[in-house]
Amino acid sequence: MTPRQGGFAFWALLMAFPILETVVRPSVPRWAAVVAILALYLWTARRQSHLTLALLGVASAAAALAFGGSWTFTLTMSAVLTGAIVRRWPGVALLLPLTAVAILAAIRTDVGGLNVAFSGWGVFVAGLVPWIIVQLWDTIAELQATRKELARVAVSEERLRFSRDLHDLLGHTLSVMVVKAEVVRRLAPSDGAAAARQAADIEEIGRQALTQVRAAVTGYRGRGLAAELASARDALTAAGIELTLRDPERPLPPETDALLGWAVREGVTNVIRHSTARTCAITLVVGDGAELTIADDGAGIGTGISGTASGNGLGGLRERVEAAGGRFAAGNAPAGGFRLTVGVPEGATP
């Protein structure tokens, strides 16, 4: 049983005072009022019914005005349930009629001006305090639900990040391995030594991929710009694509370095997979932030980033860059080929 379902039922003990008064001065109307008010109170506390709450208020007001004395405690009981059941703040106004009846009953019994004020104030506070308590319970419940939802979203975001990182890692590595395997196939009939060296490279790349995947499981987010540029040089050379690199070799913040490393990885993977390019230029400009451009002279991509030709890698990169407050642009260049531009503001966190 939750507090809202029946936590205020114990206030029915206040009926002990009207019951004692009825025992001293028994009458059928008094006993009928005891049974009716007690039943309405317990039913309303259990079922949270607005209809029985209204009936309880009417019965309590009638009994307090008719019998006076300790029967004003029934108004306190009605006020308690009104504060417990009525959730919106305008409902507090429902306490005013009960307060007015309490004041009128006190005046009729001639208890004195100060006692009259205390009677009305006691009934009003008896309803106001439970209303505040219930609001706190509701707020706590909403906060707990929000915390659970935030935890669920955080898990979903982490799963998305991990799947995106894993795709980036394996997509790049497998692309390089495919290119080198083609080189081995071409060299094997004529140059066994060169083919063996390429096969050894494939083995080393596979080992590195295993290491990177293990690191990704523990939250690894990239090898950094310098490592990715070196890997890009090897991959493009193996694919027969000439690389032009313009890198100021200035130190970058770790977050920017990691994000641009991912950009190089995805851009070069895209060049190797889809461009049929002969040359590729990677340019890095560092100022207040950093801007990386990867351009090739290939056939470009007809379907754009959202299409199947570009795959999911560039889409994931765009999400990372935009999440860091950076600029992302990718598409066919006017003079031909494909151009990827990533601008990262100073201090960006991917």
Rank of each mutant, 00 (worst) to 15 (best):
M15V: 12
A16Q: 05
I19C: 11
L20C: 05
L20P: 00
S27H: 06
R30P: 01
A32Y: 05
A33G: 06
V34L: 12
V34C: 14
V34N: 08
R46M: 09
G57K: 02
A59L: 06
G68P: 08
M77I: 03
T82C: 14
G83T: 06
R88K: 10
L94V: 13
A102C: 05
T109H: 02
G113R: 11
N115D: 14
A117P: 00
G122M: 13
L128W: 15
V134D: 14
E142P: 02
Q144V: 13
A145C: 04
R147D: 15
R147K: 15
K148R: 15
R159W: 08
L170C: 10
S175L: 12
V183L: 10
V184E: 00
Q198M: 03
A200E: 07
I202A: 00
E204P: 00
V213E: 15
V213D: 10
A215I: 01
A216N: 13
V217P: 01
A232E: 12
A232H: 11
T244R: 00
L245D: 03
R246W: 00
P248L: 01
E249H: 14
E249N: 11
E255Y: 03
L259K: 09
N270I: 03
V271T: 15
R273E: 13
S275Y: 02
S275K: 00
S275M: 02
T279H: 12
C280M: 09
A290W: 08
E291Q: 14
T293W: 01
T293K: 02
G302K: 09
G307P: 11
G315V: 15
R320F: 12
E322G: 05
R327S: 15
A329P: 06
A330H: 08
G331R: 04
G331K: 04
T341N: 09
V344M: 12
P345D: 12
E346M: 06
